[in-house]
C-alpha cells in the first residue's frame, strides 16, 4: 500500500437523504484533526461539489466531481475506475490525506460501493422517506458499516417514530451500528464524529476488513413448512 493511501469512506443512499450535508458536517467537525478530501458523483449537475465548496468547510481544491454518465450505480459498483483514479489523484495531489470521502450520486436502495473503491461505507436514509424504509431492507441498509437515519428533527412533521425506525434497522443489521442523526442535534453529530475517528484509526492500523454489502438484498421466501426463510445469496 503506498504511503499516501487514505481511508476511503463511501457515502451512499437514496437521493436527497442528506449525503452531501453529512459530508459537510464531517468536514466541518473534523477538518482540524484529519486531513480530508472529497469526491462527489453528481448525477446531472456539479451541485454537490458546489454545495460543499461553498459551505466553506474544506479547501475547494480538495473537492472534486466525477461525472457518471447518468449511471451513478455503475460508477460506484460495476466500473469504479473513474472514481478510483479521482481518489488516487486527490491522494497524490494533497498527500498525505487521512480520509477521502466519496459521495455516491444518490441512486436507489440497491446501490452500494464496491470494495475496490472504498474501505468502509455509510448508508444514509432519512425519516422523510418514510418510517418503513429501514424495515424494507436492502444491501446498504443491512450491511453498510454504518446506517444513518437522518433528519430526525423532521420526524414529528412526517409522523415517523424514530426509535421504531432505528429498531427496525437494527433488526435488519445484525448488530451493526445505526445512528439517528440530525445536524440540529449536537449529541448525534458527536456520535458521527466518533464513528469516523474510530474507523479512521481502525483502517490505518489495518484492523478493519472491508465488508461488501453486495448488490443483492437479503430476501425472504416461504419454506416448505410455511416458515419464512430470510437469506442472502452468496453466489
Amino acid at each position: 500500500m503506498p504511503e499516501t493511501r487514505s481511508f476511503r469512506l463511501g457515502v451512499a443512499g437514496p437521493v436527497g437523504t442528506g449525503k452531501s450535508s453529512l459530508i459537510a458536517t464531517i468536514c466541518r467537525e473534523l477538518a482540524d484533526e484529519l486531513r480530508l478530501g472529497v469526491i462527489t458523483n453528481d448525477i446531472y449537475t456539479d451541485e454537490d461539489a458546489r454545495l460543499l465548496r461553498s459551505a466553506g468547510v474544506l479547501d475547494p481544491d480538495r473537492i472534486r466531481a466525477v461525472e457518471t454518465g447518468a449511471c451513478p450505480h455503475t460508477a460506484i459498483r460495476d466500473d469504479v475506475t473513474p472514481n478510483l483514479i479521482a481518489v488516487e489523484d486527490l491522494e497524490r495531489d494533497f498527500a498525505p490525506l487521512d480520509v477521502v470521502l466519496v459521495e455516491s450520486g444518490g441512486d436507489n436502495l440497491t446501490a452500494t460501493f464496491s470494495p475496490a473503491l472504498v474501505d468502509a461505507q455509510i448508508f444514509v436514509l432519512d425519516v422523510a422517506g418514510g418510517g418503513d424504509v429501514a424495515r424494507k431492507g436492502g444491501p446498504g441498509i443491512a450491511r453498510a458499516d454504518l446506517l444513518v437515519v437522518n433528519k430526525t428533527d423532521l420526524a414529528p412533521y412526517v409522523e415517523v417514530d424514530v426509535d421504531r425506525m432505528v429498531k427496525d434497522a437494527e433488526a435488519a443489521r445484525d448488530g451493526k451500528p445505526v445512528l439517528a442523526l440530525s445536524r440540529k442535534d449536537p449529541a448525534s453529530v458527536a456520535k458521527l464524529k466518533e464513528w469516523v475517528r474510530h474507523m479512521t484509526a481502525q483502517v490505518s492500523t489495518g484492523d478493519h476488513t472491508p465488508v461488501d454489502p453486495g448488490p443483492m438484498a437479503p430476501h425472504s421466501h416461504v419454506g416448505e413448512d410455511g416458515s419464512v426463510i430470510t437469506h442472502v445469496h452468496t453466489h
Binding site: 454518465g69 460508477a75 460495476d78 466500473d79
Partner: peptide
C-alpha cells in the same frame, strides 16, 4: 461497454 474502463462516462 461493460468492460470497466469508464465507458459510461463518455458520449
Amino acid at each position: 461497454g461493460r468492460l470497466p474502463t469508464g465507458g459510461h462516462t463518455q458520449s
